[in-house]
C-alpha cells in the first residue's frame, strides 16, 4: 500500500528524465492549451464537419452537382419532397450539392496549394538559414525581389496563358504563397543553427541534409503548422478571387468563389444562391483564422 505512491513517484521521475518523454511533452502541452481555447476547438469541429460534408456529403445527396432537375428549371425554394434541401439555382441544379462540391474544390485547392507553398518555402528557408553565407544571400535576395512583384497579376496572367486547369490553379497559387513561409523558416533556422544539439549532430558526423531533416525541420514544425492554418484561408480567398474574374475551374464544376459570383449575378431576385455558399465560405475562413490564432497561442506561449 505504502509503496504505490513511491513507485508512482519513481515512475514520474524516470519519465521526466527520459528524453523521449521530454520531447513529447511540448506537444502535449500545446494540445492541452489548445483544448482550453474554446474558439479554437469549436473552429476545429466546424472545420471537420464542413470538410467531411464536402468530401462525403455529395455521395449521400439525391442530386449531384451537375444534374439538372428538368422538371424545375428555375430557382426553387427549399423543397424536402424533391430532395432539394436548400433549393436549386436558376438552372435547376441542387444548391446544397453544388455548395458541397464547391467546398471540395475550394478546400482541395486551399490544402494542395498550401502544401506546394510549404514544400518550396520550407526547403528554401531551411537551406538558406542553415547553410548561410552566399547561398543565404542569394536565396533571400530572390525572395525580396519576388516580394516586390504584384504576384496576383502573375497568377492571373498564368491562368490566361495556360487556360483554366485545376492542377495549374493550385500550382500557381502555391508558387506565389511560399515567400512568407521561406522567411519565417529561415529566421527560425538561423536561431537553431547556433544551438548545441546541432553542433553535437555535426560533431557526430551528420550530413547537412540529415541535420536539416532530423534536427531543424522538427523544430520549426510548430511555427510552420501555425502558418499553414493561416495560409489555407488566404489560398481559398485567392482562388475565389480568380473564380470571381472568371478564371477559376470550369462550369459545371464549381467552387465557393464561383458559386458566390453566380449568386451575386441574381442577387436581387434570388439572394439565397449568394448567401448559402457565402455562409459556407466565410464560416470556413473564420474557423481557419481562429484555429490559427489558437494554435499560435498554444505552440508559442511566450508571446502571450
Amino acid at each position: 500500500m505504502t509503496l504505490t505512491p513511491i513507485l508512482a513517484q519513481t515512475d514520474a521521475l524516470e519519465a521526466a528524465l527520459a528524453p523521449t518523454v521530454a520531447g513529447r511533452s511540448l506537444w502535449q502541452d500545446a494540445w492541452r492549451r489548445l483544448r482550453a481555447n474554446r474558439a479554437a476547438v469549436a473552429s476545429l469541429i466546424i472545420l471537420c464537419v464542413i470538410a467531411f460534408a464536402s468530401f462525403i456529403g455529395p455521395y449521400l445527396l439525391p442530386w449531384t452537382y451537375d444534374q439538372i432537375d428538368w422538371d424545375h428549371i428555375e430557382a426553387l425554394p427549399p423543397d424536402f419532397a424533391l430532395g432539394h434541401y436548400l433549393g436549386t439555382d436558376s438552372l435547376g441544379r441542387d444548391l446544397l450539392a453544388r455548395t458541397l462540391y464547391g467546398g471540395r474544390v475550394s478546400l482541395s485547392v486551399g490544402i494542395l496549394a498550401t502544401f506546394v507553398a510549404l514544400a518550396i518555402g520550407v526547403s528554401v528557408g531551411a537551406i538558406a538559414g542553415f547553410i548561410g553565407g552566399k547561398t543565404d544571400q542569394l536565396l533571400m535576395r530572390f525572395v525580396d525581389l519576388l516580394y516586390a512583384v504584384p504576384l496576383t497579376f502573375f497568377v492571373i496572367i498564368l491562368m490566361v496563358v495556360f487556360g483554366r486547369n485545376f492542377v495549374l490553379i493550385f500550382l500557381a497559387i502555391g508558387a506565389v504563397e511560399w515567400l512568407t513561409m521561406a522567411r519565417i523558416v529561415r529566421g527560425q533556422t538561423l536561431t537553431l543553427r547556433r544551438k548545441e544539439f546541432i553542433e553535437a549532430a555535426r560533431a557526430s558526423g551528420g550530413s547537412t541534409t540529415a541535420i536539416i531533416l532530423r534536427h531543424i525541420l522538427p523544430n520549426v514544425l510548430g511555427v510552420v503548422i501555425v502558418y499553414v492554418t493561416l495560409t489555407i484561408p488566404q489560398v481559398i480567398l485567392l482562388e475565389s478571387f480568380l473564380s470571381f474574374l472568371g478564371l477559376g475551374v470550369q462550369d459545371p464544376r464549381t467552387s465557393w468563389g464561383m458559386l458566390i459570383n453566380d449568386g451575386a449575378a441574381e442577387l436581387e431576385i434570388n439572394p439565397r444562391t449568394l448567401i448559402v455558399p457565402a455562409i459556407f465560405m466565410t464560416a470556413t475562413l473564420f474557423c481557419f483564422n481562429f484555429l490559427g490564432d489558437g494554435l499560435r497561442d498554444a505552440l508559442d506561449p511566450k508571446d502571450r
Partner: peptide, 18 residues
C-alpha cells in the same frame, strides 16, 4: 477586424450594393 479580414471584398461589394 476578423470579419473585415474574412469576408472577401467581392461579397462585401455585393452586400453593400444590396
Amino acid at each position: 477586424a476578423m470579419t473585415g479580414i474574412v469576408i472577401p471584398n467581392f461579397i462585401m461589394g455585393h452586400l453593400l450594393i444590396l
